[in-house]
C-alpha cells in the first residue's frame, strides 16, 4: 500500500481532506492525534498484503437473503408530529435548514 518518501501512509493534508469528505470539523489537536492514530492503523492493516488474494472473490455479505419482495402497500404511519418533534428546527410540517442558494 502507498507510502510517501518518508515512509508515511498518510499526511496532515490528507487527514484534512478526509475530514472534509466525512463532514467532520476537527480541532488542530484532533487533527494531530488523528494523523498518528490513522498512521498506526494503516501500518497494522498492511499485514493483509502478506496474503495473495489475486484469485479470491471479495465477500460483501454473508447469511441468507430474506423476503426481498413484499406487497407494494403503504405501511408508514401518518405521524408527522412525532417525527418533527425530534427536529432541531422546524416550522409547520417542514424541517428548517440554512439557506443553500445565494
Amino acid at each position: 500500500m502507498a507510502t510517501d518518501k518518508r515512509g508515511n501512509k498518510i499526511n496532515l493534508e490528507q487527514v484534512r481532506h478526509i475530514a472534509l469528505l466525512a463532514r467532520l470539523e476537527l480541532t488542530a489537536e484532533e487533527e494531530q492525534r488523528m494523523l498518528g492514530d490513522l498512521e498506526e492503523m494503516l501500518e497494522y492493516v498492511d499485514k493483509l498484503n502478506q496474503l495473495d488474494t489475486g484469485a479470491v472473490e471479495p465477500t460483501a455479505q454473508v447469511g441468507e437473503i430474506g423476503a426481498a419482495m413484499r406487497e407494494d402497500t403503504v405501511t408508514n404511519r401518518e405521524d408527522p408530529a412525532s417525527i418533527l418533534a425530534n427536529a432541531p428546527a422546524a416550522r409547520e410540517q417542514m424541517f428548517k435548514v440554512p439557506k443553500i442558494i445565494e
Binding site: M1, A2, V45, L48, T53, E57, P58, T59
Partner: peptide, 17 residues
C-alpha cells in the same frame, strides 16, 4: 485507496470464511 484497503479486506474475509 478503495482497492488497496476495502476490496483487499473483503477478499481476506472470503479466506476467513
Amino acid at each position: 485507496y478503495y482497492d488497496a484497503y476495502y476490496l483487499k479486506a473483503q477478499k481476506v474475509r472470503t479466506l476467513i470464511k
